[in-house]
Simulated assay, not measured.
Amino acid sequence: MRTRHASADDLGSVGYAFLRSALATNILWIGALKFKQYEVENDEPLVTSSPLFSRFREKLGAQKLNRLIGVTEIALGSLIAARPLAPRASAIGSFGAVGMFLTTLSFLATTPGARQEGQGMLSLSQLGQFLLKDTVLLGAALLTAAESLRAARPR
C-alpha cells in the first residue's frame, strides 16, 4: 500500500519533470525566435540601454548579437532537457540559465520604460512586467540545477 509520503514524492517527481520541460521549452523557443527580425527590433531597447550588451551591440550589430543570444539560449535549453541522459550537463545548462535570467533581470534597472513614468519605482510598465517573470524562471533554473546535481551523484 502506498503511503502519503510516497504520493508526495511522486507528485514532486512529476513537478520537477514538468518544470524542467517547461523551462527547456521556454528557453529553446525564445532562442529560436532570436533569428526573427521582429525579435531583433523588440530586443533593441534592452540591449542598447544595457552597459554590457550595448558594447556587444556596437561590435556585432543587432542581428548578429541576437543570433549569438539565440544560439546560447538554444544550447542552454538543450542542456537542461538532456537531464535523463546527462544530468551533469543539465546542471551546467541550468546554471547557465541562472546567469541568463540574472542578466535579463538587470534590464529592469537599465531599460528606460521598464517602469511607469511618474508612478514610483515599484510601478512596472508592460515591459517591466515582462522582465519580472524571469524571477520565476530563475527559480526554476535553480531547482533544476539542484535536481540535476542530485541525479548526477554517484550512488
Rank of each mutant, 00 (worst) to 15 (best):
T3F: 07
R4A: 06
S7T: 01
S7Q: 05
A8L: 09
A8W: 09
D9Q: 15
D10I: 01
D10V: 01
D10S: 09
G12A: 13
V14S: 09
G15N: 05
Y16C: 04
Y16M: 10
F18G: 07
F18C: 02
L19W: 04
R20Q: 12
A24T: 09
A24R: 11
I27S: 08
L28G: 07
L28E: 03
G31A: 03
G31E: 07
K34H: 05
K34R: 09
K36Q: 04
K36M: 05
K36Y: 03
K36G: 00
Q37W: 03
Y38C: 02
E39F: 07
V40I: 10
D43W: 10
L46Y: 13
L46S: 08
V47Y: 15
V47G: 10
T48S: 04
S49E: 04
S49Y: 00
P51L: 09
E58S: 15
E58D: 15
K59P: 05
L60S: 11
A62I: 05
A62G: 15
Q63V: 06
K64E: 09
K64Q: 12
N66H: 11
R67W: 11
L68R: 05
L68S: 13
I69A: 13
I69P: 00
T72H: 10
I74E: 00
A75N: 01
A75L: 15
G77I: 04
S78D: 09
L79C: 13
I80V: 14
A86W: 10
A86M: 10
P87S: 01
P87D: 00
I92K: 01
F95G: 09
G96M: 02
G96R: 00
A97S: 15
L102C: 05
L102E: 06
L102S: 06
T104L: 11
S106G: 07
F107Q: 10
A109F: 05
A109M: 03
P112N: 12
G113T: 13
G113H: 12
G113V: 08
R115P: 07
R115C: 02
Q116I: 15
E117L: 01
E117C: 01
M121T: 14
L122V: 11
L124E: 03
L124H: 00
S125K: 14
S125W: 04
Q126P: 03
Q129R: 14
L132W: 14
L132A: 15
K133F: 07
D134K: 11
T135N: 10
G139E: 06
G139H: 04
G139F: 01
A141M: 00
T144L: 12
A146R: 15
L149I: 03
L149T: 12
L149W: 02
R150V: 10
A151Y: 05
A152M: 11
A152N: 14
R153S: 08
